[in-house]
Amino acid sequence: MKSLWCALLVFLVAGQGVDAGDKDPNDPNELLRAKSGAVVEDPNDPNELLLSKWDAVVKDPNDPNELVRAKWDAVVKVLQAKDLDKKVKERLIGKIVSPMFDFPLMAKLVLGRRHWPKLTPPQREKFTRLFTERLKTSYLEKTKLYTDEKASLKPAVRKKTVIYIPMQLLSKDKKIAILYKLRKVDKRWKIYDVEIQGVSILLTYRSQFDDILRRGTVTDLLSKLEKRPAR
């Protein structure tokens, strides 16, 4: 009996060790594996190669200001590049921006305490995937409108576990106030909500999903999300 427990313990510890090794970002092997993995994923994908050229250089990922600033600059640079195809631009921007959003958290918060528990695990997964897609497209469309503007960051406001970073977009005929809301996840700052001119995207989606789920079912919501925008 005792040896069985010992074996189990050893097994557990070993499992932990393997698990930890997998996630250690400083492990050169892991880094290599991830890098080569990324390339193997699609060796013919020119975006993979392009990304390294266009992606933001974030000197200190722990500094949320620096993160937001660098990513915005990178996105604007891609959008203003003349020698890139439109589709390539869109995919590039998606790849640059995605890591700084906490999509799973946004999906959870957008349904909220009231509706999230109603979803089964597969539904949650599907919802998160569809909602993430919608957010990415929406980000892209909105960003395209604002690329001529000069961006300036204002001092961040820290509130307990979250940080608010205001950004001002200025041009000759427009002035747009943007507020990024970030939360620390696994030692990285990630965006969980964005306000444009005082309008929170999370709140706007929440009102829509709430309305749909009050009158319909989760299946209705998912099929509505799945539909491409009608235009």
């Binding site: 497209t137 469309e141 409108l145 235009r231």
Partner: peptide, 10 residues
């Protein structure tokens, strides 16, 4: 308006 509408579900 187009960008707004595309982003919306309802």
């Amino acid at each position: 308006y187009e960008a707004f509408k595309d982003a919306a579900i309802d």
